[in-house]
Design a protein around this nucleic acid. Structure first.
Lengths: 136, 136
DNA sequence: GTAATTGCAAATAATTTGCTGGGTG
DNA sequence: CACCCAGCAAATTATTTGCAATTAC
């Protein structure tokens, strides 16, 4: 693996490790606060710059579905997500990619489809359970 | 039945008409500029306020997939979209909703899924045509 | 009449960028 | 030792909000 023009600074390493360690699909700010515990002088701008670089290099995914901020995923393989509208937690969905749909879209629009994204919305298991207990 | 809010001001009417008239999935700013031709005193804040109301009432859709700004769709029925990564145009995709996938997600995560969204990315027919001449 | 809604401008929120000094390869 | 990259803070961008005046019902 050739690291062309990429420098492995300790900031970059800690940011990537922080993201890979969690399954919570965190925001840039969460990563910043978390990584700052290890690197107290870390700045938020550095977090954003590194997240953008890592995204361009295909090391991570940026998830920016229907909200005012981005979440990040340390797993760069395309996969789907479920967002709980009550607690705002985001879960990975282990469903096979519907690549056949890309073909259908190409036929319909006469375009070239290179990727797609899908996100599900609703109430997560934990929130379903919580309401059950507190509901009259 | 209490009709709280929801006055048909001329601003609201023009904003909705402007959005319904186009197939371009425009931004709030585009709608503002366009509607301003008819209502010169219109302000951008009013456009945002009305778009949010219309969204809440289910009259329109807000599309905020993977970008720093929202686009709006005058068709409130859930449907998929294709975004051309070259020219940034957005197209409606006429594909049946994959509601069966919602069931699969519910089974996998033990959650309640109420909706989902899907977006396709690539190069649109027009952009393919433009490059066809220069491709080997 | 009166409460929702407007225009305006200032406030937020998330992210990006310019500068300069420091650390990596 | 060249030059990428960090830290810091100010700039940008999209959107929201407070307020007094206006307007629809």
């Amino acid at each position: 693996m050739i690291r062309k023009g990429k420098r492995m600074t300790k900031q970059r390493r800690v940011i990537l490790e922080t993201l890979r360690r969690t399954k919570s699909h965190p925001t840039a700010d969460w990563i910043y606060k978390e990584a700052k515990k290890e690197l107290p002088d870390l700045s938020l701008g550095t977090v954003y710059r590194n997240l953008n670089k890592l995204k361009e290099e295909g090391e991570i995914l940026e998830l920016s579905f229907g909200s005012t901020f981005s979440r990040y995923d340390g797993n760069p393989e395309n996969h789907y997500h479920f967002l709980c509208l009550q607690c705002d937690r985001m879960y990975d969905v282990d469903l096979p990619l519907q690549d056949n749909l890309e073909k259908l879209v190409e036929k319909e629009l006469g375009c070239r489809v290179t990727s797609h994204r899908m996100e599900f919305y609703g109430k997560c298991g934990e929130c379903l359970g919580n309401t059950k207990n507190t509901m009259p």
